[in-house]
Amino acid sequence: MRIPCPYCGARDASEFAYLGDATLTRPDPAAPDADEAFHAYVYLRDNPAGAHSEWWYHSGGCRRWVKVARDTTSHAIAGAELAGGAR
């Protein structure tokens, strides 16, 4: 699988480290239901078959986090952008 890094270009997946789901948002620790929200944030994951958004760290290249839109059934990659938005 080759991942299209926005800075480096298409590179083999072995140059990247996988972090996981990029759709999660860190909960507010001050909220009354923070314990439950953090349990879900840290431990509970969907296992989608199909389109997924996920983080890959380009440790062998530009050392930036890349948000990749990948189909988990075909490994087809629809797009990739650098974390933090601006390229």
Partner: peptide
Amino acid sequence: DAPRLARANGLGTIGAGPGR
């Protein structure tokens, strides 16, 4: 801001990552 080499005034600059 790209993986390229440029030279000027005895220095070469090589893009190593965004902003680096």
